[in-house]
């Protein structure tokens, strides 16, 4: 670890640095992992267009396909699907026969908008711990989408709009791909629509969506509106008239998180691994040394240590799926 983040001396690069560096390897394009200002970026091929959209078209990016490897300095580096969002990658670093994997954020649950998590055998594994408590066990996404559809349908029958909050990158597209689009039209916030475009261009099929500002109608009853969580309670929502609102997040597993936000419904849907997912991912790597970053670090460390797996905490500036989320760029300009 260095001041700018996780550093690999053999290859002279940082992984997801939080300060500008010469060479940054990026696991995925969420703001807490991909920061502007570095001279060179390396990321998965599917991540590149998103990274450009977020950090600027002019940045220097080297894109690497999943599974291909590259030698930098004395180390060999390869990227492997993390299942978190489109283009998210685990970074594998081979150095003198010792293999490291930095997983970034990941989930094991199926998600039609990106490639599934791939377990990678290694000696040392860096895992996230956003939801590292046994209270977090995700219901199947089929179950959650059935609930979302039922809520949307009920609102449509009650002549209300349905406003659904989810991160503009990743969660929003997973929601749009997963709902039953035959229930009604889908409108989006600008930040969501920008990402939808990139997903579609990358070949991810999404049902048709319309940027809310360009809607041909003023009547949104029966429609689904997908917006970033920061829009909750904002004046931007006024145009939708009578609506019910809901949030899709792993935190919705806990009643207090939903109630604190004064939203009508909370759907449990996360792009992070739940407790059984974390434990199974760690086990599948076969690693004999585990580093744990952002989230419930202490419980996971103790659990692993009690199970005889050497585990150490790693202080980072990643926030995972924040319990009180705010995205940096939430302007509605599409």
């Amino acid at each position: 670890m260095r001041e700018a983040g996780l550093y690999c001396p053999g290859g002279d690069f940082y992984i997801d640095p939080w300060k500008p560096v010469d060479r940054a390897v990026i696991t995925h394009a969420h703001a807490d992992h991909a920061r502007a200002g570095s001279l060179n970026y390396l990321c998965a091929t599917a991540c590149a267009p998103i990274l450009r959209a977020r950090l600027g078209q002019e940045i220097a990016i080297q894109a690497l396909d999943y599974g291909n490897s590259l030698t930098i300095g004395t180390v060999k580096i390869s990227l492997h699907p993390a299942g978190h969002i489109l283009g998210s990658a685990q970074v594998k670093v081979d150095s003198n026969g010792y293999a490291w994997v930095v997983s970034g954020d990941y989930k094991l649950d199926p998600d039609p908008t990106n490639q599934p998590f791939e377990p990678v055998r290694c000696n040392g594994f860096v895992t996230e711990a956003t939801f590292a408590l046994p209270i977090f066990r995700w219901p199947s996404s089929a179950e959650t989408f059935a609930e979302i559809n039922a809520w949307w349908q009920q609102n449509r029958d009650d002549k209300r709009a349905s406003v659904l909050y989810g991160y503009s990158l990743g969660k929003a597209q997973r929601l749009i791909a997963g709902v039953d689009a035959s229930i009604g039209p889908i409108y989006t916030h600008g930040a969501v629509e920008r990402m939808n475009e990139i997903y579609r261009q990358s070949g991810v099929p999404l049902p048709p969506t319309v940027y809310a500002m360009e809607a041909a109608t003023k009547d949104f009853s029966g429609a689904l509106i997908v917006a970033p969580p920061g829009m909750n309670g904002s004046a931007w929502l006024r145009r939708f008239g009578n609506f019910s609102n809901a949030m899709a997040s792993g935190w919705m597993q806990v009643r207090g998180h939903r109630r604190r936000r004064a939203i009508d419904r909370g759907f449990v849907l996360s792009d992070h691994a739940d407790w059984p997912g974390l434990l199974s991912a760690i086990e599948q790597t076969g690693a004999d040394q585990v580093w744990v970053t952002h989230g419930s670090i202490a419980p996971l460390l103790r659990w692993l240590n009690e199970k005889g797996i050497a585990a150490t905490g790693l202080q980072t500036q990643f926030s995972g799926e924040d319990a009180n989320p705010a995205e940096p760029e939430e302007s509605d300009a599409a």
Partner: peptide, 29 residues
């Protein structure tokens, strides 16, 4: 009943803030 050690139960309780809810989430398995 959920096969969770007491210290981990305490961590979960701190995250949930409600005992009945903590218990029901852990038992959900």
């Amino acid at each position: 009943s959920a096969d969770v050690p007491p210290w981990l139960f305490a961590e979960c309780y701190e995250a949930v803030g409600d005992l009945a809810e903590t218990a029901s989430l852990l038992l959900a398995a």
